[in-house]
Amino acid sequence: MSAALFEMLLRLGDNTLVLGHRVSEWCGKAPVLEEDIALANTALDLIGQTQMWLGYAAEVEGKGRSADDLAMRRDVWDFRNILMLERPNLDFGHTMMRQFLFDAFHRAQLAALAQSSNPRVAEIAAKAVKEATYHLDRSAETVVALGDGTEVSHAKMQTALDLLWPYVGEMFESDDVDAQMAAEGIAPDPDGLRAAWEATVRDTLSEATLTVPQDNFAHKGGRTGARHTEHLGHMLTQMQWLQRAYPDATW
């Protein structure tokens, strides 16, 4: 098996799994019914993408594990998602700002992955990029509506942006895994996605009358597994409890 390919697939699948779970936490308690349905549908797309990425990761690993095993039987230190996605939802504005910052990256990443030299990666990305594009339409529209909304909604969106900005840098981090994947034409170098991402994000945030923070400090460690925030473990106790309490339980 290719250790680097397995690692890359975990990073992709864990991003969609952790964000998908976080977004699903809104189900039944979003501010209005339409947003509740939209959030649940977004979560569903992300979990569907997770099945494809982690399903392929399990095949590449070749140890007889399944996508479910990878999702439900690994512990914090084995997760490879970026830190921004494991942050608690906080308020609706923070949830949508996080979604927007990630969607803009996710769409660019998937569009590049759709050109992958690995046909399995390319076909999963070609499927997922359509969904990510739709997510970005909605999250960008919502960020503008709330940012350029009332005094209260504007203030909440600015607070969310200030809180989240130190987490965006991790999306563009590169290490040996990325270098190997880029050299083999399997995945883009994350740093190369930054310019397109910045253009999309700055346009939308300016339309939303929000101020982009100046500081480029970045919290890191999620995508390499070096260190997660304290929030991921708490999230896993909810997400994994059934398989932990009743191993191999089926529907």
């Binding site: 569903l44 797309d45 992300l46 979990i47 569907g48 993408q49 099945q51 494809m52």
Partner: peptide, 8 residues
Amino acid sequence: TPTYSGCP
């Protein structure tokens, strides 16, 4: 072919 990745 699936319509959406996560379509139940």
